[in-house]
Structure formats: structure tokens, C-alpha cells
Simulated assay, not measured.
Amino acid sequence: MSALQGKTAIVTGGGSGFGAGIARAFAAAGARVLVADINGDAARAVAAEVGACDATCDVSDNASVGQLAYVAADLLGDVDIFVNNAGITHLPAPMEDVTEVDFDRVLAVNVKSVYLTARHFVPAMKARRSGAILNIASTAGVSPRPNLNWYNASKGWMITATKGMAIELAPHGIRVNALNPVAEETPLLASFMGGDTPDLRAKFLSTIPLGRFSTPADLGAAATFLCSDAAGLITGTALEIDGGRCI
């Protein structure tokens, strides 16, 4: 219950889904949390629920991420933990049929955001010689699914970026890890499956040995551990939270 006592944390995309689950778990573990989301109302709702603070942020926009850093300094002071959770996908389609607009948006939110948050938050962590960064990737980056090619690629990039960040930032006392969840029951589920019917669900669940989707609570528990001092020797890992799907 006190694994993150005295820590400060930012969770992007914290207004729903996995991000909300991570924010809840961090708050329950004693952290002071800033819930950031492009949907300001959603961020405020989760923050009010867990006793956190909130901010509206478009993680694909440099000015918006810069403003988040300013707000965080005012509300939290030093930031000990940063969770890059915000992410989107494109609808299932042959790779050549995905529009350029959708491609650019997936890369901006899933890839460029990690670069932008590093620009604005890593320097202060380096100065303090401490910090934990957690990137929420996906099993799609390990075991790609047909017709989600550019989403798969964005999550594979995030896994590689996690390892690169970890080796570069280790001398500065900063740990960087990732989580690879399987799909969860959110509005994005229909996008991953190409619809949401009992047959499609059964087909997808048949690929998960433990027979269920990831939940926000699953991600929250794993995130709390990886960002706590108990995981002090763990960096550069991409932990699969997938019920065995990637075996």
C-alpha cells in the first residue's frame, strides 16, 4: 500500500482505460499523481476519484507537452515517475489502405510523444540522478497482428526505444521499462478486432491461454512494481501482461 509513498508521478492518457488503472494504483500506493489526458474532463474525473491533480495535454504537440512540464513543476515539484501511456490505433485495414492522416496520427501519438516527453522531463531527472520512466507498449509490438501494421510498428518502436533509453539513461540513475498488454475491454477493443461481436471476442480470447483480456488493474499492479524501489535493478525490460498470448 505504500510502495510509492513520497513519489510523484505523471500518467498520460490517464483519463480512461489502462492509464486510469495506473493512476488509481499509483494513488493507492501513496504517490502524488498528475493525470494528464487530451480529454480534460476525463482527466479531471479520474483525478477527483483518486485524490490527484489533472492537466489537459496533447502528447503529440511540443507546446502542449512543454505546458505539462510547467504545470507539473507547479503542482508536483520534482517528477519521480513518468508514464507514457497515451496511445491510439488505426482501424484494421491492409497496410496500403491506411490513410496518410491515420498513419501520421498513430506515429505522432504513439512515437513522437515519447520523444517529446523525454525532451521536457529527462533533463530534470538527469540533474537529480534519479527517476523511472514507463512506456506502455503492446503485445502487437512483439507478435504483430495482420491489418494493424502501422500500429504494430509504432509499438515495436516503443519497445526498442525503451531499451535504448534504458541503456543511455542508466548512468544517470534513471530506469526505463515498458509493459506489453494484450487488448482490454475499452472502446479501442472494437478497433483491434475489426468489430465487437460475441464471435469476434471468442476468437480473440482463444489466442490468450489464460482466457481473458488485460484489465486496468493488471496494468496498475505491474506499473506500480516497475516504478517502485522494489524494482531498483530492473531497467530495459518489456514485461508482457498478456495471459500468455506471446508464448
Rank of each mutant, 00 (worst) to 15 (best):
M165Q: 14
V182Q: 07
S191R: 14
A183G: 09
D196C: 11
M165G: 00
G164L: 04
A190H: 13
K155P: 06
A183R: 02
A166S: 02
S191T: 15
P181E: 00
L169D: 01
L188V: 10
G173T: 08
A178I: 03
A178W: 09
V176S: 00
W157E: 12
E184A: 15
N177D: 09
T162A: 04
I167H: 14
E185T: 04
E184H: 09
D196F: 12
S191Y: 15
T160F: 08
K163V: 03
A166C: 08
I167C: 13
T186V: 10
G164T: 03
V176I: 06
P198T: 02
L189T: 12
V176Q: 00
I174F: 10
M158C: 13
F192K: 05
A170V: 07
E168H: 13
L179C: 01
M193I: 05
S154K: 00
L189K: 03
G195V: 10
G194R: 09
I174Q: 02
W157C: 15
T160D: 10
A183E: 12
G164I: 08
N180Y: 03
L169H: 04
K163E: 10
T197S: 14
A161D: 07
V182A: 00
M165V: 10
T197F: 05
L189G: 04
M165I: 02
I174C: 06
G194Y: 05
N180R: 08
S191D: 15
D196Y: 15
L188M: 14
L179M: 11
